[in-house]
């Protein structure tokens, strides 16, 4: 129990230590004027807000698309859709995120922004949730579905009260992976004017400002680890009881 608890809290504690250490180091040193224009509280908060917003929107799109698609693809009348959906999602993940992002940006011809970034990144992060929804629903013991129907549950009753709850552990595991993909690829958001920590990394690299570069990277990595941990928390809280 205690060992489990230590492992559970180790990740957020490590993130806080690293991020806190980097920030302390940066802000305690002398900053040039150029550095100060990026490394100040308001622009850091803005980058964090942009990055989080992108992650949340991407994840929301992923869930809203992949979960219903996964459910449809496991219904007896639409089984043939599963390989089709998986193939599409596979293309999304196989294609380089940055390439898809920029192509989409060029296609829309827009000035960029949150939504131009969110759609291709969602396409890229789709596969884990879709695949796990399909696998999760497929691995539900068919005799439970039979028992449910046999005692008078409707088809949708069996889906929502038996199949879906029993698939949630896998769906949530997929969601966690998708979240991590989303938060990682959101660093590309700056290329389509969607901001995020990518902005700091880019600025630091192009202007050769080591402190800005390190801060941006550390914050991006820290956020990814934190989001992964939140995913783990969700898995624990929202998984069905009685399975372990």
């Amino acid at each position: 129990m205690t060992a489990e608890r230590i492992r559970f809290w180790a990740q957020p504690v490590a993130v806080l230590l690293i991020v806190g250490g980097v920030l302390a180091w940066v802000f305690s040193s002398r900053l040039t004027a150029t550095e100060k224009s990026t490394l100040n509280a308001s622009s850091l908060v803005k980058a964090l807000a942009d990055h989080l917003l992108m992650t949340v929107v991407v994840t929301a799109i992923v869930v809203l698309v992949a979960v219903p698609a996964g459910i449809v693809a496991t219904r007896p009348w639409a089984r043939w859709l599963a390989p089709v959906f998986l193939a599409i999602a596979n293309v999304g993940q196989a294609a380089p995120a940055l390439g898809v992002l920029v192509l989409w940006f060029l296609l829309t011809g827009a000035s960029g922004g949150l939504w131009v970034a969110a759609l291709p990144l969602a396409f890229y992060s789709l596969l884990p949730v879709l695949r796990n929804t399909i696998v999760g629903l497929q691995q539900v013991d068919p005799s439970l579905v039979d028992a449910g129907r046999g005692i008078g549950m409707s088809a949708s009753g069996v889906l929502w009260r038996v199949e879906f709850p029993l698939a949630t552990p896998l769906i949530l595991a997929g969601l966690r992976t998708s979240l991590v993909l989303a938060v990682g690829t959101a660093t590309f958001g700056l290329f389509v004017n969607a901001g995020g920590f990518g902005l700091l990394i880019d600025t630091g690299y192009k202007l050769n400002l080591m402190k800005v570069l390190v801060t941006g990277s550390a914050l991006a990595a820290g956020l990814a680890l934190l989001v992964d941990w939140i995913g783990a928390v969700i898995e624990q809280w929202f998984g069905p009881k009685g399975l372990r």
Partner: peptide
């Protein structure tokens, strides 16, 4: 059919209990 099955008891091998229900 759903009404019918609610009026006919049904028990199967290995009980078919829902593992996430008490």
């Amino acid at each position: 059919p759903d009404d019918l099955r609610r009026r006919v008891g049904y028990a199967i091998q290995q009980a078919g209990l829902f593992p996430h229900f008490t």
